[in-house]
């Protein structure tokens, strides 16, 4: 009995320490990201990705950080280099987890980075692609708050560009907030974030509506 217990303990300890590597790594990477050390964060996510070949989260985050950092980019050479790298990470994540709405909307975010840089050059083809992505993601996961929110943000961006009211999309943001609050957070490191952003957007929506 003792032997079994000991054995069990050892096995458990071993598995705990293996998981710790992942948790330690991810925690550290998030910390780097939070402290604006984007390159280091991306590199750590990349390293974790090669160690955790069946987990879509590390390459997903490597891509996400890369894309977000590309939004401020003014040099097209650097922009495309970053976004090409981000696409590689996303492709890796996508190969592990197919038809994952979180990955799909990140592809759309990647396209948006190009469109934000030069709408004339990239808008014509990529905006059509984004609409297709959002529609597909919404069909797969109609109650995913991030899908609902990012589609609403996209629609608002379009309305603003054409000088049309954004109010019709405020109800989508409200719906996203409800979904965020209902969401059960069960998987560690899953990208549950977005509630704060949604609330900020809604605030903006409401002030605009009350002005009118």
């Amino acid at each position: 009995m003792k032997k079994i217990l000991l054995l069990l303990t050892l096995v458990f300890a071993a598995s705990v320490s293996a998981q710790t590597d992942y948790e330690k790594g991810m925690t550290k990477a998030f910390e780097l990201w939070k402290n604006q050390k984007n390159t280091e964060a991306i590199q750590l996510f990349e390293r974790i990705a090669t160690a955790e070949k069946d987990n879509w989260l590390p390459p997903f985050y490597a891509a996400t950080v890369q894309i977000i950092s590309a939004f401020r980019e003014k040099d097209e050479t650097v922009l495309t280099a970053k976004l090409n790298k981000a696409k590689e990470y996303l492709d890796t994540a996508n190969a592990i987890s197919k038809n994952n709405p979180e990955i799909m909307i990140t592809y759309a975010l990647l396209n948006t980075a190009y469109i934000a840089f030069d709408g004339q050059k990239y808008g014509m083809t990529l905006s059509g692609k984004n609409v297709a992505i959002y529609n597909k993601a919404l069909a797969i996961a109609p109650n995913n708050p991030r899908v609902v929110l990012s589609k609403a943000e996209w629609d608002m961006g379009g309305a603003k560009f054409f000088g049309q009211p954004i109010e019709p999309f405020c109800k989508d943001v409200k719906k996203a907030i409800e979904l965020f609050k209902e969401e059960k957070q069960t998987t560690k490191f899953y990208p549950y974030n977005g509630l704060e952003r949604a609330e900020k957007i809604l605030e903006n929506c409401e002030t605009k509506s009350s002005q009118n």
Binding site: D21, G25, E40, R47, T50, K53
Partner: peptide, 15 residues
Amino acid sequence: SGANVYLDGTYDGTA
């Protein structure tokens, strides 16, 4: 500087 160096499939690496 800042290149990512690591052993494939492990947590071992640095910049």
